[in-house]
């Protein structure tokens, strides 16, 4: 025996079908006209964006200089020189920025996997959470609050993700002497060389060092990494395959830098025993 609610909603749907049959209008030409106009607008907008992307690129419109809508293409991918900014397309910025909020190792998984999974499941379950037949917005306060919260938080996260600053390697190199002095490894040539590599290899897009850097994906602060006395060999192994030494680490492999460079970086990390 179906409940009153089920009987009622079945009745309303039968009524809907009867009403549409009686006083609806045919899809063609009425609704189809609206759909066609809207589709033409969509195609025009897409074409317009493509034209602006190309013709706002400076010079002869073929280089890697950014136009109003960004670069036509970046420099070729090079797994060896690791001066990179791990930045996704704009519609992933909200996820991207979540990675700056949650910190490694305890809660980063909440930002990377936990929250998005929970949101996806909640989204799938919407029709089973909201089972009332009321459709008028003013009588659905929970739906209003939920949608405002979602739109605002996604908007803020997207904006923060879009404006999040990544430091350029060239600016960071200027800080190397200061780092060496503060951490007291100026005399250690290997470590100073490693500090240069550290500055230009994109490490600070995620890690922080003496107050500089991204704090992205929960990457730890490395100012006092050497104080843990893990040893040069450990650091080299970790740089080659972070997830092998530290299971679940999202850090990419830096094996492409080569043995000599890895040794410099490792010496730098071991020499970084914090500032006094």
């Amino acid at each position: 025996m179906p409940s009153d609610r089920i009987v009622e909603r079945r009745r309303v749907f039968q009524q809907y079908k009867a009403d549409v049959k009686e006083r609806g209008k045919p899809f063609y030409p009425f609704a189809m006209f609206h759909d066609t106009v809207m589709s033409l607008v969509v195609v025009a907008v897409i074409t317009g964006l493509a034209i602006v992307w190309k013709y706002s690129t400076p010079g002869d419109h073929i280089g890697t200089d950014p136009g109003w809508l960004g670069k036509l293409y970046d420099d070729p991918a090079d797994p060896g020189t690791i001066n990179f900014v791990p930045r996704p397309d704009w519609y992933f910025y909200f996820l991207f920025y979540l990675l700056r909020i949650f910190k490694w190792p305890n809660s980063v998984i909440i930002g990377t996997i936990g929250l998005p999974t929970v949101l996806l499941v909640l989204l799938l379950l919407v029709p089973f959470i909201d089972i009332r037949s009321e459709r008028r917005l003013l009588r659905r306060p929970v739906a209003i609050v939920a949608s405002v919260l979602v739109v605002v938080s996604m908007g803020v996260l997207t904006y923060k993700g879009a404006t999040a600053k990544e430091s350029l390697g060239s600016e960071l190199v200027a800080k190397v002497p200061g780092w060496a002095k503060a951490a007291n490894f100026t005399a250690n040539k290997q470590a100073v060389g490693g500090a240069h590599l550290f500055a230009v290899s994109g490490c600070l897009n995620c890690h922080t060092y003496q107050g500089t850097g991204g704090g992205f994906a929960g990457a730890p602060n490395l100012t006092a990494e050497g104080a843990k006395n893990k040893g040069v060999q450990f650091q080299i192994d970790h740089l080659k395959c972070p997830a092998c030494v530290n299971p679940g680490s999202p850090m990419p492999s830096f094996a492409g830098l080569g043995e000599a460079n890895l040794k410099k970086l490792a010496s730098f990390l071991e020499a970084s025993k914090g500032t006094k």
Binding site: F84, P250, P252
Partner: peptide
């Protein structure tokens, strides 16, 4: 596109 942006965003 296999450029720097593409490659490193995907690695991460």
């Amino acid at each position: 596109p296999w450029d720097q942006t593409a490659y490193w965003a995907t690695v991460v």
